[in-house]
Each structure stands twice: as structure tokens, then as C-alpha cells.
Nucleic acid binder design. Structure first.
Length: 339
DNA sequence: AATTCGGGGGT
DNA sequence: ACCCCAGAATT
């Protein structure tokens, strides 16, 4: 059965694979970059970021010598910002400590910051053709349905052992990519077209009418909601107040306008604001209700704690912001002239 | 083993 | 409103 699956899978892959830029290379730097960008991210969303990164940083040395703020700005909007932070750290590490050489074994690759089990297996197999099986969300779905695995997909070990057993040792790179592509294109999460599937006659879920039930994903019962105020504070010199967030926690090392998310406001503001608005921001683990307020003040009337800085409104785009902060700035700035 | 970390697109 | 994506680090 294993050989039948492997052979059909590779045949299917040859005929149906998408032409993606990181598939036309064995450069470990490009492959690593693409894998980090694509962590928990759809190909369609990650693709433009990948193209931006390889254009701006054609080599790992280019990435290593870039300022972190510039890397974060290029990453803006992708989310999971620690990926960018770790990636930049690892680029510097490999350039300065490792002579710019990418490690070639799975074990060494997995030691790199920001590289876990999946990404290490992907790089080792794609770039160096090592026989290590990748397990991502796509692979888990394919395995769960084909074999009828009914344990929660959080139980990674179960899936890894099945993926290991199924790996094609002759062609690990093609096999791994084919597994993921099959999950992404054919064995999709919702309403897969099983009628056209080449694995139909050997698929446990299809034969037992369990396609809709597998894979099993245990979800958290509820998502908490928080409220916060965000303050667009403008002075008479057309500057606004921003600061860099701490290097840990949510939105690490991104820039923000004054706000009450997880903190008290450390500023004294006048009684009157110019306008206000509302924004809902949905995270994986909570919902944030944002009320934004637009103030105009005299620069001399405010005492700044040391890490705030005034920035020209026309230069605010040089900094990397969380998406809701960028939305507030863009919304208000685009009304310039009304006030 | 459970929680934290983002954002977007599909349905 | 819910799902889930080429997951990893931290607790």
C-alpha cells in the first residue's frame, strides 16, 4: 500500500504542482527564507513577501547586515513578528560565526533559532535531499484521512511517525513537497473534491465517510475580548508620538502610538480631542476592541517619558507597525486638511 | 502538555 | 462566525 501511495503521489505531483519560486532553487538561504515566511501563512499571502525579501536581500550576508528595523518593516503585516526577529538573528549568526555557510544536516539546522522540527526537515530535504519527513498542517490532513488517524493533530508524534514510515527514501525532496502540495491542492480542509481524487480507493476516510470529520482538531472553547484606547497625538509641527515596543511579548520590537493595551497611559492629555473612531482587531487567541482618539496639542504642553519620540507625519512610514496601528495612522493622515 | 504569538482569506 | 494556513518558543 505504501508503494502505491508513494508512486501515485509523485505522479500526481508532476502533473499538478504549482510553479512556486522557492521550488526552482536548491539555495538553502532561499529555501529557509521561504519556509520561515510560510510558517502558519498561506502561500498566496507569503509569496509577495518572499519576492520582496530576496530582491532586497539576495544573499544571507545582505540580510545579516540589514538593520533590524528595516527587516521588521519589510515583514510588516505578516504577523508572528518573532519569525523576522529570529530570522535576522540567525542570518547574523550564520554570517559572523558560521562563515556564511548553511549547516547541511537536519540536527544542525534544527539548532538554529526560529527553526523547528518542520522547517529543519523542509530545508534538509529540499536543499540537501536528506531523508527526513516533513509534517505540517497539510501533511497531517492527508495522513489523518488516508489512514483514519483520529487523534488530535496537536499530537505531533503520532503524525511524525506515520510520515517517517511513508517517506520515499529515493526522492525525499519530491515526496515531501508532494505531500504538502497534495494537501494544499487536492485534499483541502473544506469540501475536498474526492470524486476526482486518485487516492479514493485506498483512502480510509473516503471509504468510511469520514472526510468531513478528519483530521481532529481540538479547539479552545472561547476567545477572550479586550478593550484598549490608542492615541494619535499630533503637535503644531506636524509630528506624532510613537515609540518602540519591548523586545518580548506581543508585537515585539514594532513601533506603536500611545495606547492602553496591557498598560496604563503614561501621558497627560487635554480634555478635548478632535475625533475618535473604532476598530476591531482579531487575533488567534483574543479579540481586541480599539477606540482611537485624535488629539492635537502644543509640543511644550506635554512631558515625555524617555522612550517616546516625535516623528514627522511624512516620515511615519519608515517604521514598522502592527496592522491596527498602521490603520489608525493611515486613516487619520489621509484626512489631513480637515483639521 | 498547554499557552503565546498575527493576520488574512475562504466559506 | 468559524476555520486554518509549508509552526516555534516559552512556560
Amino acid at each position: 500500500m505504501k508503494e502505491i501511495f508513494q508512486q501515485r503521489l509523485l505522479n500526481w505531483f508532476e502533473q499538478n504542482k504549482r510553479n512556486l519560486p522557492w521550488r526552482n532553487t536548491q539555495n538553502p538561504y532561499f529555501i529557509w527564507l521561504s519556509e520561515v515566511i510560510l510558517q502558519q501563512t498561506r502561500v498566496a499571502q507569503g509569496l509577495p513577501y518572499y519576492l520582496k525579501f530576496i530582491e532586497k536581500y539576495p544573499t544571507i550576508q545582505d540580510l545579516a547586515k540589514a538593520p533590524e528595523d528595516e527587516v521588521m518593516k519589510l515583514w510588516q503585516g505578516l504577523g508572528y513578528y518573532s519569525r523576522a526577529k529570529n530570522m535576522h538573528y540567525t542570518a547574523k549568526y550564520l554570517t559572523e560565526i558560521h562563515q556564511g555557510q548553511f549547516p547541511t544536516s537536519f540536527e544542525e539546522i534544527k539548532q538554529l533559532k526560529g527553526v523547528g522540527q518542520y522547517t529543519a526537515a523542509a530545508i534538509a530535504s529540499f536543499a540537501f535531499n536528506q531523508p527526513v519527513a516533513v509534517v505540517d498542517g497539510n501533511v497531517q490532513r492527508v495522513l489523518a484521512r488516508w489512514l483514519g488517524i483520529n487523534t488530535d493533530i496537536k499530537n505531533k508524534k503520532i503524525f511524525q511517525s506515520h510520515a517517517d514510515a511513508l517517506l520515499n527514501f529515493e526522492k525525499p525532496a519530491a515526496h515531501n513537497q508532494a505531500m504538502m502540495e497534495f494537501g494544499a491542492v487536492q485534499c483541502v480542509p473544506q469540501n475536498p473534491d474526492c470524486a476526482s481524487c486518485i487516492m479514493q480507493d485506498i483512502c480510509y476516510a473516503y471509504k468510511n465517510d469520514l472526510v468531513r470529520e478528519l483530521p481532529i482538531r481540538v479547539k479552545k472553547p472561547f476567545k477572550p475580548e479586550k478593550k484598549a484606547y490608542f492615541y494619535y497625538i499630533e503637535n503644531e509641527e506636524h509630528q506624532i508620538l510613537i515609540r518602540k515596543r519591548p523586545n518580548k511579548g506581543i508585537w515585539a520590537n514594532l513601533y506603536e502610538i500611545p495606547n492602553t493595551l496591557n498598560t496604563e497611559l503614561d501621558l497627560t492629555l487635554p480634555a478635548q480631542y478632535l475625533e475618535k473612531g473604532y476598530l476591531k482587531h482579531i487575533f488567534t487567541h483574543f479579540i481586541l476592541h480599539i477606540t482611537w482618539l485624535h488629539y492635537k496639542i502644543q509640543k511644550q504642553d506635554i512631558v515625555l517619558s524617555q522612550n517616546y519620540e516625535w516623528v514627522e507625519i511624512d516620515k511615519t512610514d519608515d517604521f514598522a507597525y502592527p496592522v491596527p496601528v498602521q490603520k489608525i495612522i493611515t486613516t487619520i493622515r489621509n484626512k489631513k486638511g480637515l483639521f
